[in-house]
C-alpha cells in the first residue's frame, strides 16, 4: 500500500519535472535547428526558462468565455491530463521500479489513452468558438483513426512476447531487442508514425496548429488550464516514447549502467527523435492524414500481422 503511494507520488513528480525539461529541450532543439539560440537569459542557456513560464502561467487571469458550456469547458483539461498521468502506472522504469505490474499492462495503457479523445472534444465544443470546434473534431477523428494501426502494431509485439504484462515483454527481449527483427522493425515504424498522430504532433498537428485555427481546441484556455493542456501534450509524448521503448527497444535493459539510466536514455532519445522530425516536416492536410491512416497504415499493419502470424506457426 505504502509502495503504491510512494510510487504514485514519485511518478507525478517525475512527470512534472520531465514536462518542464521537455519544454526547454524543445525550444533549444528547435532553435539550433533554425540556426538561432533559443532561451539564453534565465539560468545557464535558459534552463530556468520553464520555471519562469510556469510562474507566468500561474499568474494569468482565468478567463471563461461568455458562451461557454461551463461544466464541459472546465472539465476538459482534466479529461486530457489525468488519463495521460494514469498511463504511467504500468511503465517499467527499471527491473524493480514499476508502480504496479498489471498482467494486462499494455492493454491498460491503450485503453486509458483513449479517454483523451473525450477531453479534446469537450474542450473543442465547450469553448463556443468555431476554431476550437473544428480543432476538437479534427483531433478526435485523427486520434480514433490512428488508434487502429497503433493497436495493431502493439498486437504484433504481444504475439511475439506471449504476454500482455510490461515487465514480461521486457523480459522476453533478453535475447535481442524486438526492433532488430524485421517484421517488428516495420511495426516499430508504424508505431512511431501512429503515436506521433496520437499526441497531436507535427506532422499531424492540425488540431492545435499554431498558425491555423487560432490555436485549435485550446484557444480559449488561459493560465493554469492551458498549462494542463501543455503539460499533457509533453507528458503524452513521454508516455508513447516509454511504451515504444518497452515494446521495441528492450525497456531498461543495457550493459553497464543501472536499468533506470538506460530507460531514461532510450525514452529521451525517442523524444529527441520526435522533436527532430517535428522541425523537419511541414504539416499534413487533414484529408491526407485520414487517407494515410486508413488506406496505408491499417492495411500495412494488417498485412504485417498476417505475415508474422503465418511465419510463427509455419
Amino acid at each position: 500500500m505504502m509502495n503504491l503511494l510512494i510510487g504514485g507520488i514519485s511518478v507525478v513528480g517525475f512527470i512534472s519535472l520531465s514536462a518542464m525539461f521537455l519544454i526547454w529541450l524543445e525550444r533549444k532543439i528547435s532553435a539550433h535547428i533554425q540556426n538561432r539560440m533559443g532561451p539564453m537569459i534565465c539560468g545557464w542557456h535558459g534552463s530556468l526558462q520553464s520555471i519562469a513560464d510556469s510562474l507566468k502561467l500561474l499568474l494569468k487571469e482565468n478567463i471563461v468565455p461568455s458562451g461557454a458550456d461551463k461544466l464541459v469547458w472546465s472539465l476538459a483539461p482534466f479529461f486530457v491530463t489525468v488519463p495521460v498521468v494514469m498511463a504511467f502506472l504500468t511503465v517499467p522504469f527499471s527491473k524493480t521500479l514499476i508502480v504496479r505490474d498489471l498482467n494486462v499492462g499494455i492493454l491498460y495503457v491503450a485503453s486509458i489513452t483513449s479517454i483523451c479523445v473525450l477531453g479534446i472534444f469537450m474542450a473543442g465544443w465547450g469553448s463556443n468558438n468555431k476554431y476550437s470546434l473544428l480543432g476538437g473534431m479534427r483531433s478526435a477523428a485523427q486520434i480514433i483513426s490512428y488508434e487502429v494501426p497503433l493497436l495493431l502494431s502493439i498486437v504484433l509485439v504481444v504475439m511475439e512476447a506471449g504476454t500482455l504484462s510490461m515487465q514480461g515483454i521486457v523480459q522476453a527481449q533478453e535475447q535481442g531487442w524486438y526492433v532488430l527483427k524485421p517484421n517488428l522493425a516495420f511495426a516499430f515504424l508504424i508505431y512511431l508514425i501512429s503515436s506521433t498522430a496520437e499526441v497531436n504532433r507535427v506532422p499531424f498537428d492540425i488540431p492545435e496548429a499554431e498558425s491555423e485555427l487560432g490555436a485549435g481546441y485550446h484557444t480559449e484556455y488561459t493560465g493554469m488550464k492551458f498549462a494542463m493542456f501543455f503539460v499533457a501534450e509533453y507528458t503524452n509524448l513521454v508516455v508513447v516514447s516509454a511504451i515504444a521503448t518497452t515494446l521495441f527497444l528492450g525497456g531498461w535493459q543495457g550493459p553497464l549502467l543501472p536499468g533506470l539510466f538506460w530507460f531514461l536514455i532510450k525514452v529521451y532519445g525517442l523524444v529527441c527523435l520526435s522533436m527532430w522530425v517535428r522541425w523537419t516536416l511541414p504539416r499534413v492536410r487533414m484529408d491526407q492524414m485520414m487517407t494515410f491512416a486508413w488506406k496505408v497504415l491499417t492495411p500495412l499493419s494488417i498485412l504485417n500481422l498476417l505475415v508474422s502470424g503465418w511465419w510463427m506457426v509455419r
Partner: peptide, 24 residues
C-alpha cells in the same frame, strides 16, 4: 524524403547560430 530532410535538419543543428545572444 523524410530521411533526407532529417539529414538537412541535423546538419543545421550543428551549424553555428546566425543570431547573436543580444544583450551580452
Amino acid at each position: 524524403s523524410l530521411l533526407i530532410g532529417m539529414r538537412v535538419t541535423a546538419q543545421n543543428f550543428f551549424a553555428p547560430a546566425v543570431t547573436l545572444d543580444y544583450p551580452r
